[in-house]
Nucleic acid binder design. Structure first.
Lengths: 252, 252
DNA sequence: GATGCCAGTTGATCTCCGTCAACTGGTCGC
DNA sequence: GCGACCAGTTGACGGAGATCAACTGGCATC
C-alpha cells in the first residue's frame, strides 16, 4: 500500500501477536502461547493508512477482519440518499469488519482518522485456526458480542439522552478507552472532527461546538481545538444525566 | 415454566429443527441433514411465555441462546436511572441472547409481547456441536453479524431520519419481515404498544399517535388499534425519505 | 351494567436543537 | 507573506417534536 517511506515502520514493528502491546485488548486475549503462534502465522504484514484512506467500503467483498494497531478509524453506513451515519470510532486493539460476515460483503465503510496501522486477518486462514482452536473461536464470538453491546450503548445514548448528556457520555467513554490503553484519560486528543462527533451523536456541528464552549464555561473542560482536557471528571459524570427525574421519554 | 395448560402444545409441536417451519430462517439454514440431527439433540423442550413474561433480565447468568418459535418479544436496555431503550422486536425464526457472550451475563432484558414459544439452545452443548461442525460455527457467526447490521439500520434511522420517516421505515421493515414469514405484509398485527414503538424510535407516544393519524389521513394506512393495513405501499416507501435533499444532518 | 383503569388520541403550548448567516483562525499552496 | 479554503465558533431565528392536559374507548372486575 505504502511506498518506501514506511518500509522502516514495517521492519521495526515486526508483527507478532505474542509480543504486541495490544495483546490483552486484541483477539488473542486468553489464548495459550502455542495457539498464539498459530494465530500469529495468519496475520498478514501490517498496512499503513494515511488520514482519510479507506480500509474497506460498502459493497467490498469480505476477505479479512482488521485490528487497529495504532491511530484510529471511523466506521459508517450510508443510505441511498447518501446520508451518512457514523457507527463508531475505533482505537488500537479493536477489531473491525464483522458487518461483512452476514452477507460476505461489507455493508459499511471504514476510514482512517489519522495515520494508522492495521493488522489484517484473512478470514479463510482465520477459519482454519478457529476450527482447530476452540478457545479462539469462543474469543472471536466474545469480540463480536462486545460490538453488539457497544451498539446498545450507542442506541441508548441517541434515543434517550439530550445533546449535552450525549456529549458528556461520549467524552467519558473516550476517556475510559484511553485509560485502558494506558493513556491519560483526562487529556484527550480527538482524532475526529466536530462534524464526525456531531454525526455520531445524531446532532449538527453547531450544537456540538456550542456544547464544548458551554462545558468550558462551566469549568468542566479545557478545549483547544482537537485537544480536550477534562478538568472536573466528577462534573462531567454528573452531566451524563440531567436531573435523574421522570421525563416521559425515559424510564417505563 | 408452564403447568398443565400447555402440555398439549408441547406434545403437538414436537421439537425438531429439520421439520420446523422456521428451518430456513433459523440457525440451521444451510446445514446438512446429519448435522441438523446433532443440533436437534441440543435443543431443549420449548418454553411458553405469557405476555409480559421475562425470558432473561439484565445481570442474568448466560447459559443459553433462544430462538423465537412463535409470538414475539422485545429486547431492551436500561441505564442506572431506569430509562429504557428498546433495541429490537423479535419475530419467529430470530435468535436472541448474543449480548451475553461478551461477559457471560446478559446486559439486556427480553420480554414477551404476546404469548410466545421459545426454543432454548443451552450454550455449553451448542459449543460442543459447533466445534464438531464448522459449518454451524460459521452460521452462528453469520447470525450475530446480521444482528450487528440490523443495529446499524436502527442507528441510521434514529440519527438521521425525522419522526415520520422513522415510522414509515419501521412499518416497511416490519412488512418485509412479515412477508418472509409467509404472512400478508400489508396486514400488520402489531404486538407491541404505541409506547414501545415510540421508545424504539426515540420518540414519545403522542408523536407516534399523531403520525399514525396523519398517515391514515393521507390514505397510506388504515389503522384500527393494533391492526394496521398498508393501503399504499408505494406512498409508504416514499415517506421513508422526505425530499432527498441536502439537510445538514444528512450526507457528508 | 356500573366502575375503574389503562392505552391511545387530540389539542395547546413550550423548548431544545436545527437552520441560516456571519465571522475567526489555522493551514496549505504559490 | 498573501490569499484561498476549510474547520470551527457564535448569534439570531424558527420549527419539529416534547410536554402538559383533557378526553375517549376497550376491557376487566365486581
Amino acid at each position: 500500500m505504502e511506498p518506501t517511506a514506511t518500509v522502516l515502520d514495517l521492519n521495526q514493528l515486526r508483527r507478532s501477536c505474542s509480543t504486541c502491546a495490544l495483546h490483552e485488548l486484541c483477539l488473542p486475549a486468553g489464548i495459550g502461547v502455542d495457539d498464539l503462534n498459530r494465530l500469529d502465522a495468519t496475520v498478514k504484514d501490517k498496512r499503513m493508512l494515511d488520514r482519510g484512506a479507506v480500509l474497506y467500503r460498502d459493497g467490498d467483498k469480505f476477505d479479512a477482519l482488521y485490528v487497529v494497531r495504532s491511530g484510529s478509524l471511523k466506521t459508517f453506513v450510508q443510505n441511498e440518499a447518501g446520508d451518512m451515519q457514523i457507527l463508531a470510532f475505533h482505537l488500537p486493539g479493536e477489531i473491525i469488519g464483522f458487518d461483512a460476515l452476514a452477507s460476505n460483503q461489507h455493508v459499511s465503510q471504514a476510514e482512517a482518522l489519522e495515520r494508522s496501522s492495521i493488522c489484517e486477518l484473512p478470514y479463510v486462514q482465520l477459519q482454519q485456526v478457529t476450527s482447530d482452536v476452540p478457545a479462539l473461536h469462543r474469543q472471536l464470538m466474545r469480540v463480536i458480542s462486545r460490538e453488539v453491546v457497544e451498539e446498545h450503548r450507542h442506541l441508548m445514548m441517541m434515543g434517550r439522552q439530550q445533546a449535552q448528556e450525549q456529549l458528556a457520555t461520549f467524552l467519558r467513554s473516550l476517556s475510559d478507552r484511553y485509560q485502558r490503553l494506558q493513556r491519560d484519560g483526562n487529556a484527550l486528543n480527538l482524532s475526529m472532527s466536530r462534524y464526525d462527533i456531531a454525526n455520531y451523536l445524531g446532532l449538527v456541528v453547531e450544537t456540538v461546538s456550542r456544547l464544548f464552549s458551554r462545558m468550558e464555561e462551566m469549568g468542566v473542560l479545557e478545549v483547544n481545538r482537537k485537544s480536550v482536557r477534562i478538568l472536573r471528571p466528577d462534573l462531567l459524570a454528573s452531566l451524563c444525566r440531567t436531573d435523574a427525574a421522570s421525563k416521559q421519554k425515559s424510564s417505563g
